[in-house]
């Protein structure tokens, strides 16, 4: 198991290398010159050329790439062209905001999705099953930006239950320690702020959770239906076991592996796909960070931001793979 983990972590290197190369070229394919954007439309040609030289963008691409790569190897993510700060220093608050939002969204998606799938399979062809699966179908086909706007319109504007956007009450800002506000407010014992943070999280988290929730529900249902026809389920019932335990112990553990795979893949999509949600709800996360960097042609920020997200994505899927072996004793990694 340990050697497998090490092997998997080592195999990250070529993946991330390839990715860094692709991102490097793709940004440079976007029209627009960083120096021109920083200096504005009215800047002289000389000033632009001077800044380009300062930024090192006059160098041939391979020198630029290897300088960047050299930095990465020593743990240096580069420096933002716009803010002139080290990216490794300024990235964390954005990353923390995205992690907080994605983890909440995923928790909602897993809790509701898995349970809806289980109940649908348990009471197959019941009205619950039909309604849940129609909702799931609507869920997967729902555009996030539309859902987000509708949520704001209904729950924030018409009902006035929840705030429209942001992470915290502007007049009562959270003092950040870890930048994950749910933890920060609890550490400081500020329950009022904790509820504020939760209220701000609900709408964006549900918007972000909708698609993964729908997919998880459908996969759980089909996986459970297959397992519940197994002989060992009949054995468990013949022992006199309650249906609840037959379903939640014997069936679920067998049905969960395909669901885990989907959870792993969807978590990655959440990290990247949060951009729309973050924009609609003015959530100061990675999506916003990278989106602003693209507008400013802030090459190092785009490169490093995408690389960090890719790294987390690959790590999540490594954890999922290791979980398979923890759940199923027949799976052995050598």
């Amino acid at each position: 198991m340990l050697s497998y983990t090490i092997k998997r972590v080592m195999s990250l290197i070529p993946v991330l290398l390839g990715l860094s190369l692709i991102v490097f070229f793709m940004i440079r394919a976007i029209p627009g010159d960083p120096a021109q954007i920083i200096l504005g439309q009215l800047a002289t040609k000389e000033a632009v050329a001077e800044l380009t030289k300062q930024l090192g963008l006059d160098q041939p691409w391979y020198i630029q790439y290897f300088t960047y790569l050299g930095g990465l190897l020593t743990g240096d993510l580069g420096e933002s062209i716009k803010t002139k700060t080290a990216i490794s220093q300024e990235i964390w608050p954005y990353l923390a905001a995205t992690i907080e939002l994605s983890v909440c969204a995923m928790a909602i998606a897993i809790f509701i999705g898995v349970n809806a799938g289980i109940i649908s399979a348990w009471y197959q062809n019941s009205w619950f099953d039909y309604i849940a699966m129609v909702l799931a179908l609507i869920g997967v086909s729902m555009p996030i930006f539309w859902l987000g706007l509708m949520e704001q319109w209904v729950f924030a504007i018409n009902l006035d239950w929840l705030p429209t956007s942001g992470r915290e009450e502007v007049r009562n800002p959270v003092e950040s320690i870890t930048n994950i506000y749910m933890i920060d407010t609890l550490l400081q014992g500020r329950m009022d702020q904790f509820w504020d943070v939760i209220k701000h999280l609900i709408l964006p988290a549900f918007a972000l959770a909708t698609i993964p929730m729908a997919i998880i529900a459908r996969i759980t249902r089909s996986s459970m239906l297959e397992v519940m026809r197994s002989d060992f389920i009949r054995t468990a019932r013949a022992k006199g076991l309650r249906m609840f335990w037959v379903v939640y112990k014997h069936s679920l553990k067998n049905a969960i592996i395909p669901v885990l795979t989907i959870i792993g893949l969807q978590s990655g999509l959440l990290l990247g796909g949060a951009i729309l949600t973050e924009t609609i709800f003015s959530w100061p996360g990675m999506g916003r960070y990278i989106y602003d960097a693209i507008n400013a042609r802030d090459y190092p920020v785009i490169q490093s931001g995408i690389l960090v997200i890719a790294f987390i994505f690959v790590m999540i899927n490594l954890v999922v793979d290791l979980l398979y072996a923890a759940i199923d004793p027949r799976i052995k990694y050598n």
Partner: peptide
Amino acid sequence: RMREIRGNEVAMIFQEPMTSLNPLF
């Protein structure tokens, strides 16, 4: 009542020993 009876007063074994036990426990 059936749950009390199953496995306690009436027990059952099946044709396929390969698949009649839960593989994950």
